[in-house]
Nucleic acid binder design. Sequence first.
DNA 1: TCTGGGGTCCTAGGACCC
DNA 2: TCTGGGGTCCTAGGACCC
Length: 418
Amino acid sequence: MVALVDCNNFYASCERLFQPRLLYKPIVVLSNNDGCVVARSDEAKSLGIKMGIPAFQIKDLIDRDRVISFSSNYTLYGDISNRVMQTLSNFSPEVEIYSIDEAFLNFSGIQNLEEYAKSIKTTVKQWIGVPVCVGVAETKTLAKIANRYAKKNFKNLGVWVIDSEQRRIEALKSTDIEDVWGIGNKYSKMLRSFNINTAYDFSQASENWVKTKMSVVGQRTLLELNGVSCLTLELISEPKNNICNSRSFGQPIISFSPLSEAISNHAASCAFKLRKQKSIASFVQVFIMTNRFSKEDGQYINSTTVSLPIGSNDSKTLIKYALVALKKIYKDGFKYKKAGVQVFGIVPENHIQLGLFDSPSNAKSKKVMKLMDDINFSNGKNTLKLAAQGFDRSWRMKNEKLSPCYTTRFKDLLIIDI
DNA sequence: TCTGGGGTCCTAGGACCC
DNA sequence: TCTGGGGTCCTAGGACCC
């Protein structure tokens, strides 16, 4: 048996942790740049605020103070997430951290599943303050369904165990096809056109038909819904094969210099992520784009890739080649809205491939990067950075409603007057 | 005025090898 | 009428997840 623990309205719950007066109030958390709604409290959901809706479309509600909004504070959410995961590790030796707010736990050998799941819910609430729901079943996909079922029908209990054929069918029948893990927008439309409307309908489809229509991925989902486990717990996280860093700008950029600062910062972030997973990359891709929603302004989207002479994770090297790429595609006369850097050809750093005439003299650069990372780790991100990253940051993203970093910054510690 | 960011996996098709 | 058989690697595109 496997359990899925999923935090309720996670970002909204994190914000509420330190502002109890917001309990029972509708609150939303916005995406980067205060763009779209990415998390809603139950009260906000019942006001009809949809996931992903642009913030300006609910401006009235926010202005009239009916809904309280927050910019995303990933430092806070990341820290709370770590605490939740740490707590979960007390309940099972095998925990797969699936996302910032969910984890799968190996439940094999546990006697009273429902009681055990309840104790997880109670403990996380008591130790961390975040409400969670727990779904338990034979496969990961069914555990997801059980979790949803608990959220929908037994919010207070917060736990659902699929441990009988009857319960499995009941849960499948009450799950819409688009709510099945692994079946997204395109597939659910296709399936609905064949009159497959619920998870149960899908579970009755023939394996061959599903494989033809949805490849082995769909076939796995089908089997998992029928209690055949195809997805195992992934306990060790593999190094990333793709690393990308990009942001929209708080305001449009119309000249090269701030754009080059933004690209330098993105390249430095990629380099940092590479160093963190002990990898190097061989290609750097840069992309820039104008505001795709703007009807009046001219549109320009372009990207280009340059290859590094030797694979690297050195910020100086990545910035240097990212700027070479940027110069190739930059054009005057456009209002740029977003830019980013992506790195490819990622391999472990000891797999470095030298050119015929190169000598392996990167010891110095490694030392510098290590020093920089150490200083930034103990003193805060960007304490030490490269000049190309700039000091102006006029391109910086908008986050006007950022909450304090209550748990990670001394000056943001909550003070309580008694 | 204002519309997020970061990933994964799979398949088909083309180019190549012996 | 007839045209081998068995592979690999790479890329683009499409689906999905949070």
